[in-house]
């Protein structure tokens, strides 16, 4: 017994320090990325060209921003199902604000993000103070956001084309060769790493995810932390929607529908426990790239929408079975 544990220890000890500390889930995710790239390059030699990879990172950055918000909420052991219409709302409101002349164009992005924060506040209040299960509050607020957007677009035809500033943010290039969307994603990622690893808020998020009761008894204002987390998630979803509107150069109904499942999948595939309290941001980045590559390969292979849904579902279930299982209860 002790011998086996010793030999296991020695195997572990022989690995380089970086690998030893790394989460096996994150390593698996990066391994899968390499595998996908390899498979893709067998299919077409363009897969390893820098242009293609940069294009993939650019597409991944929208999902990356949304998944960052989703990750904070999942770390708490909650979930945010209001992503689709919060994204759409952020995009539509930003484009609408841009319709009001020069000042409008200036405040377009903040307006979109603020709308997302408002919905996030609604979610957070319901979850933290009314103690309604997060899945249900966010499902309901998704309907509310949808209703608001139907009322807003129904009566008249609002401005829906994205202003130049938003388009520049999503598709322009500040550094030659690197699309701005990737830089935005990098900035969001840096902020996330700082927030989760270096602030009291980040510690509290992990603490609540492990045991809200224990965090409360240790003097953490758990309700405030949960509410702020949902506000952040709403803001990041809406910001992702704004970027997407810039990429597609207009805001459209239901533009966020394709982002709910991938954003949850990216977080879970990156090794974040769906029960909360465990997970690293690096894993989420890996998950986002993995999902984007998977999408790209499926579309290059001209897989129809039905097949894509099935493959997503199965990939998520298999990954969950590999490392997302709850401990045996007895």
């Amino acid at each position: 017994m002790s011998e086996t544990s010793e030999s296991r220890l020695s195997v572990k000890a022989r690995l380089p320090a970086l690998l030893r500390r790394a989460d096996p889930a994150v390593l698996t995710a990066f391994g899968c990325i390499l595998l996908l790239l390899l498979l893709g390059s067998l299919y077409s030699s363009n897969f390893l060209s820098p242009d293609y990879l940069l294009q993939q990172l650019k597409v991944a950055s929208f999902l990356g921003v949304v998944s960052a918000g989703m990750m904070i909420v999942i770390l708490l052991g909650h979930i945010d199902l209001s992503v689709p219409w919060v994204m759409t709302m952020g995009a539509m409101m930003a484009c609408a604000a841009a319709g009001f002349g020069a000042t409008g164009a200036f405040v377009a992005i903040p307006v979109g993000v603020l709308c997302g924060m408002a919905l996030g506040l609604l979610n957070g209040f319901g979850v933290a103070y009314l103690r309604i299960p997060s899945m249900i509050v966010t499902l309901a607020s998704n309907v509310v956001a949808q209703g608001l957007m139907v009322v807003y677009t129904g009566g008249f035809s609002p401005q829906d084309s994205a202003p130049p500033a938003i388009r520049w943010l999503a598709t322009g290039t500040l550094v030659p060769g690197v699309p701005n969307a990737i830089l935005v994603w990098l900035a969001v990622s840096a902020a996330m790493v700082f927030l989760l690893a270096r602030t009291a808020f980040g510690r509290a998020v992990y603490g609540i995810g492990n045991s809200e009761r224990a965090a409360f008894l240790s003097g953490v204002g758990t309700r405030r932390v949960v509410m702020i987390a949902f506000i952040l998630s709403g803001a990041l979803s809406a910001f992702g929607g704004v970027l997407l509107a810039g990429y597609a150069s207009k805001a459209a109904q239901a533009m966020g529908d394709a982002y709910l499942l991938p954003s949850i999948a990216a977080v879970v595939l990156g090794g974040t426990s769906i029960l909360g309290g465990r997970g690293s941001y690096l894993g989420t980045v890996a998950g986002v790239i993995l999902i984007t590559l998977l999408q790209s390969i499926l579309s290059v292979m001209q897989m129809p929408e039905a097949g894509r849904q099935i493959v997503y579902g199965i990939v998520i279930i298999v990954m969950l079975l590999l490392y997302g299982r709850a401990p045996p209860s007895r």
């Binding site: 039905a306 849904q309 579902g313 199965i314 998520i316 969950l320």
Partner: peptide, 18 residues
């Protein structure tokens, strides 16, 4: 499988819809 019902059924839902 001891998976969380929320995520497991979102994923199976995608499969059923597909």
């Amino acid at each position: 499988g001891r998976l969380q019902p929320i995520v497991a059924t979102i994923a199976t839902g995608a499969v059923y819809f597909g």
